[in-house]
């Protein structure tokens, strides 16, 4: 079965952790993940500058590791990212901002990527902030 996973909540939201555990279980079950798409507050999960308290899971790092280890097509909504200060090198240059902070493994792109992935998969599973 092919899955697309859309995440909408902040990095520390329960839904973001649940999405990761679901994604891990999907791969463990022999399924394929067509794409992970971060939208709304979830774009902050792709920031390389997140710092979690020591007694909490570093959700940004956990997602980054999952994406890298499994070579997941991992897309961040560009409009949602820009308005929250998550920039790649190209956008930092374009808008003359001092630094790029998009973590490795993620790519900024448009909402069309969510639509395309929804067409290509068998199941679209969305996770909100709760």
């Amino acid at each position: 079965m092919k899955f697309t996973i859309a995440v909408f909540g902040a990095p520390h939201a329960p839904g973001t952790r649940r999405a990761l555990r679901f994604a891990q279980a999907a791969l463990a079950g022999g399924h394929e993940i067509v794409r992970v798409f971060l939208y709304r507050e979830a774009v902050q999960t792709a920031s390389a500058n997140l710092v979690s308290p020591q007694d909490e899971t570093d959700m940004g790092r956990a997602w980054q590791r999952f994406v890298a280890d499994n070579q997941i097509d991992a897309v961040v909504c560009i409009a949602a990212a820009l308005r929250r200060g998550v920039l790649d090198t190209g956008e930092a240059q374009r808008y003359q901002r001092p630094a790029a902070n998009l973590a490795a493994g993620w790519a900024l792109s448009g909402l069309g990527q969510l639509h395309e992935a929804a067409q290509q998969c068998d199941r679209l599973v969305c996770f909100g902030d709760q």
């Binding site: 079965m1 899955f3 909408f8 909540g9 839904g15 999907a26 399924h31 068998d122 199941r123 679209l124 599973v125 969305c126 996770f127 909100g128 902030d129 709760q130």
Partner: peptide, 11 residues
């Protein structure tokens, strides 16, 4: 998620 034909998250 596989057993049912679609997944509707009440996000």
């Amino acid at each position: 998620s596989c057993q049912y034909q679609r997944v509707n998250g009440w996000t």
